[in-house]
Amino acid sequence: MSVFVWIETFSGQVVPGSWEALSAARILAKGDDLDVVALLFGTDDHAIIEDSHQRGAATCLVCSDETLLDYRLETYSTLLGELVKSRRPRAVVSAATNRGRELLASAAGDTESGLLSDVIDLRVEEGMIIGARAAYAGKVLMEMTANTNTAFVTVRGRAFPAAPRDDQRQGTIERVAPAPSSDAMPTEVLDFKSESGTISLADAAIIVSGGRGMASNPAEAPENLDGEEATIWKAKHGFANTLSPLAEILGAAIGASRAAVDAGYIPYEHQVGQTGKVVTPDLYIACGISGAIQHQAGMRNSKIIVAINKDADAPIFKLARYGIVGDLYEIVPALTAALNKQLR
């Protein structure tokens, strides 16, 4: 028996969460002394195969048929379902990315297998795979198990360390044929707009976030704007010219509170919290964020939280390890300058 791990690629590159999934797969394999098998669909890249071996995959199952060159849920989940039915792995693991979530949920459905999604911790106890995960927007934790032959598991970004490389490690390669596809291409990708250059919140080690306080920008809005439009301009200007330089020097992703998103200061993709993303960076810098319970749900498990806020009574200070009481438009530029001195 084996533990499968899906190595997700995008534009020929392995997505960061996949090496974390591989280390989760190694935890499950170790418990029962099984082999880790890396699944590579739509790629035959020697460097990725070698990387998978060096990070602990005993075997790479490669299917680089041309029907799999572009990711499609239908073809990928059919193939994964077939591989699970024929080889009966103990578990199938992937990163809880958008694609990982849909692929594993679909294949788990096709094979009537249990799925533990978005787990933050894994262990094997008396042959049982037990996953810990958050529920109710992180207000509650739960432990679950799958009682089927194969357990499907998606792992939350940054919950497991990336599996380390060992140059000495080698492995085998097995090529498999694609599953006879039951569909006649029901989906067709017409266009793709890349958001490259931005660091994904889920993978970021450092996040700089802005809230309602972003509107108190002393910069003058253009004269033709007034009222709400002027406020939105000021907040956007602040994200671009005050928060972004700090994020850039830290290599950080930019986050935001729901209040900032709903007010139109920044697109929804940046929202951290109950109806946004749940993040666990090493460092979370909250600027002008009061820290409503909905926001806390998304960031309270960050390792170190820094709060910068005018209001000394803001609830965010209760979560923060370090706080500075004051105007973010004075403190953030000073912080950027201080980091420039230290880090460059």
């Binding site: 533990l116 958050a134 509650v140 739960m142 198990t145 309270r300 923060a320 390890r321 300058a337």
Partner: peptide, 26 residues
Amino acid sequence: ATAVLRYMNPPARDVSTEIVHGENVD
């Protein structure tokens, strides 16, 4: 296909907040 073994309250966030002081913002 799954069973919930138990629910748990998340560990309390054990932080003592230090307010950083100084003569000026720099």
